[in-house]
Simulated assay, not measured.
Amino acid sequence: MIRGVRGAVTVEKNEEKEIVAATEQLLREMIKENHIDAHSVVSVFISVTDDITEAFPAKALRAIEGWTYVPVMCMREIPVPKGLTKCIRVMMHVNTEIAQEKISHIYLGNAVSLRPDLQQELNR
Rank of each mutant, 00 (worst) to 15 (best):
S43F: 13
K32N: 07
H39P: 02
V80W: 13
R3V: 08
Q120E: 14
N110P: 04
T96H: 10
L122W: 08
G7E: 14
I64A: 11
Y69T: 01
H93Q: 11
M75S: 12
P116K: 04
V9H: 13
M75C: 04
V11N: 02
E24R: 12
F45T: 09
I103G: 01
H93L: 15
I106D: 00
R115A: 01
T68D: 13
V72Q: 09
D117C: 06
E121C: 05
G83A: 15
C87R: 08
V72Y: 05
R6K: 01
V70E: 06
A22I: 06
I88A: 12
E15P: 04
M91I: 15
K86H: 15
A63Q: 14
M91R: 01
F56R: 03
E97Q: 09
V5W: 13
L122C: 08
R89I: 03
Q25Y: 07
Q120W: 12
G83N: 09
H93R: 05
M92R: 00
N14V: 04
V9P: 02
D37M: 03
T53G: 14
I64C: 09
T23I: 11
E16M: 13
G4D: 14
V5K: 01
L122A: 15
L61S: 06
M1V: 00
T10C: 07
A99W: 02
N95L: 13
I106L: 01
E12V: 07
V72M: 01
H93V: 03
G4H: 14
K13C: 05
S47G: 10
P71Y: 02
H93A: 09
T49P: 11
I78Q: 11
N14F: 04
W67Q: 14
T10R: 06
R76Y: 10
V41A: 02
I106A: 00
V48S: 11
P81S: 09
G66K: 10
V42Q: 08
D51F: 07
Q25N: 14
T23R: 06
S47A: 12
P57N: 08
N34Y: 00
D50T: 03
A22R: 13
